[in-house]
Simulated scan of single mutants.
Amino acid sequence: MTDRDRLVQLISDLAVVRGRVTLSSGEEADYYVDLRRVTLHHDAGPLVGRVMLTMLDNAGIEFEAAGGLTMGADPVATAMMHQAAAQQRALDAFVVRKKQKDYGMGRQVEGPDIAGRKVVVLEDTSTTGESALTAVEAVRAAGGDIRAVAVIVDRDTGAAERITRQAGVPYLYAFSKTDLGL
């Protein structure tokens, strides 16, 4: 079984919750994909890192750092960083706060400096694209050169089009809702 096949199975088994839910966007849906059940899982986390790296590499995206809005992107970036290290590849992770700190260093983007570096903005799943766009804005303000926005699961609800249009960068996803049988 390939990493991709195993990961889609784990997402279906662990993360897909059926029933009426309200999403972070405020919209209602008949299912919820709780990807923290996967990104923080001992078997699935490493698969997330490998699948996301492979997807970005296959798309020809060059990048030196990856991260996004806390909290959905944090374990994705960390999984990618660890899997890159296992491949003898340097990849830094970063975290984007929802708003800039008003104390300490006053940063909104935490981790190694991304100014002037090629970066990918991550999200675990996307409905409206709002979280990714918030991260894009912060990363650009911090001087990051955004090469793409990448998510594990795209809900096919307009996020791809919105992000591509507003951020002006490619939008990639590892799995669609169809891949999950939704």
Rank of each mutant, 00 (worst) to 15 (best):
A115Y: 14
V95Q: 00
G49F: 02
Q87D: 15
G49M: 02
Q100G: 03
M1N: 10
Q108R: 13
V17W: 04
L133K: 01
K177H: 09
R107L: 15
V169W: 04
A66S: 03
A93D: 07
A160S: 14
R165G: 04
Q100K: 11
T39F: 04
L7D: 07
S24A: 13
D30W: 11
A150N: 07
V149W: 03
A174W: 09
R20N: 07
E110T: 03
G129Q: 08
Q87L: 15
S24Q: 03
Y103F: 14
A148I: 03
A84T: 11
M71P: 03
R117Y: 05
V51G: 00
R6T: 14
A44L: 04
A93Q: 13
Y32I: 06
D57E: 15
R89C: 07
L10A: 14
G19H: 09
H82N: 14
A167V: 09
A73P: 03
V38S: 01
E137K: 13
P170V: 05
E28V: 09
G72N: 04
V16F: 12
T134C: 03
I163Y: 05
G158S: 14
S24E: 05
K101M: 11
A167R: 07
A15T: 13
K98H: 02
I114W: 05
V96C: 03
Y173E: 03
D30Q: 15
A135H: 00
K118H: 12
Y103S: 12
R89W: 06
M105C: 02
V96P: 02
A77Q: 06
R155M: 08
A150F: 04
N58W: 06
A138Q: 12
L47Y: 11
G60S: 14
K118S: 12
T2A: 10
Y171I: 15
E28D: 10
Q108N: 10
A29I: 03
V17K: 10
L180P: 01
A174R: 10
Q88R: 15
I146Q: 00
Y31Q: 14
R117H: 11
G104W: 10
V48I: 07
G143N: 07
F94V: 07
A135Y: 03
P112I: 08
D92K: 11
A174H: 09
M55G: 05
E110G: 04
D13L: 11
A135G: 04
V17Y: 01
A86K: 04
T134W: 01
D145T: 08
L53I: 05
A85D: 12
S24D: 05
T134L: 06
T125D: 09
L23V: 15
T125V: 14
G45E: 04
L180R: 10
R36H: 02
R97M: 07
Q100E: 10
R147H: 06
V169F: 06
A93C: 13
R50N: 13
Y103T: 11
R165P: 02
A59S: 12
H42R: 10
A85R: 10
D3N: 15
V17I: 14
D30E: 15
T22K: 14
V17E: 10
Y32K: 06
H82V: 07
